[in-house]
Write a protein that binds this DNA or RNA. Structure first.
Lengths: 205, 205
DNA sequence: GTCTAATTGTTAAATAATTCACGGATAAAG
DNA sequence: CTTTATCCGTGAATTATTTAACAATTAGAC
């Protein structure tokens, strides 16, 4: 199978989401231009992206929303993703309650915190456990992704715990780069950097 | 002035943060290799990035931490960034309390919510106002960035408010693309997409 | 002072992503 | 049945980014 560009993958996930909305609203056909307008992209980029997955559109008509969604899903999604969260502070709690995960295909199956007063509680239906039990619970829940939302000074420590549990994917919200074995993939979500780089862009264009 | 690559900018912001830590810990000199190890990058990429801003290192020695930080700051940062937040729900509250903004150069100067029970309160020192007063307060506080953390169905509406207030930068946390005039810059932070694209990467490498 | 090893800075090559240009398909009109 | 306007798919060109290769510099050893 041909290698698909990373950016094509993330855009395809967005296409799927828009297609879901279109289908829900009863739209059966959509053109690349219409999709482009909805997403603020160029139509040719959308056609190019889709072309990675076969010839699915019809000239003079467009794409069948349901069919296109199905094809994109087959290529870029798999089953529901199970994740565990480390750190039930302000950010961690917000993540547990984030509504986007429900409609989408992400399920947080357990949360961990050092704070004993939080352990044993449930937040948005997710139980909070002691970090000590993390490895055991991760293997029991078949979690595939670990989320780091602990204070910066504990991030590397938690990363080590996640790695030792065998999980191969980490979403890191702390503003520090964690070091992990090569086979473990990390996504850094760094709020400050987003703001500051946006500011740079605003100044320089 | 020569155009600097977008990715170089975001990495430079990370360099600044690491340099701050090094300076704080009393480190005066650092090599590109050391920086690279700390950040999980290649040393040549770091030298290439820095070379955009002049010849600042010394062969056989490395970079003076303070000097390098100063030079990077001069190029990629400006004064403190003032932002306003729309939506004081779970995510919005977490953003208001996010500790990374304090050390870094971002200050949230006001928050807005539709919910009357929230208006008038202060969260982490930031006052919550009615959305009706947004334009007025934005101009008074000289905010440069608007943050959208409202439920998806109100995102476009809030984006319009932000645009009408003259703000030229938006950080959008809602999982929907907002449409704004060309002169307004948007950063989408989409949690679901991060998880799902990470999952794709894990499967395909 | 000379040599050596380490480290920067830079040009060139390779890779990745986007945009352009246009051929091909086809629905709809007449 | 023919024409026409529209929309998809794609190879080529362009632009952006990373990686490789190596020349230049210099601190430190002797």
């Amino acid at each position: 199978m041909k290698r698909v560009a990373k950016k094509t993958i993330t855009r395809s996930l967005l296409y799927i989401r828009i297609l879901e909305k279109l289908i829900e609203s009863g739209t059966h056909i959509v053109s690349s231009k219409q999709l482009a307008d909805m997403m603020g992209l160029s139509d040719v980029k959308i056609r190019k992206d889709i072309s990675n997955f076969g010839k699915v559109g019809r000239p003079r008509i467009g794409y069948k929303t349901f069919e296109l969604k199905k094809i994109l899903e087959d290529f870029v999604l798999q089953n529901i993703v199970h994740a565990v969260l480390f750190g039930v502070g302000n950010l961690g709690s917000a993540i547990l309650k984030y509504p986007g995960f429900h409609q989408d295909r992400i399920k947080i199956v357990a949360a961990f915190d050092k704070d004993k007063s939080k352990v044993g509680k449930k937040i948005n239906g997710v139980s909070v456990y002691s970090v000590k039990n993390a490895v055991k619970i991760i293997s029991k829940t078949h979690a595939e992704i670990g989320i780091i939302a602990v204070p910066e000074k504990h991030s590397q420590n938690i990363a080590d715990v996640i790695v030792s549990s065998g999980v191969k994917g980490i979403v890191n919200f702390s503003p520090i780069s964690i070091s992990v074995p090569e086979k473990v993939f990390v996504r850094d979500i760094d709020l400050s950097i987003e703001f500051l780089s946006l500011m740079y862009e605003m100044r320089h264009k």
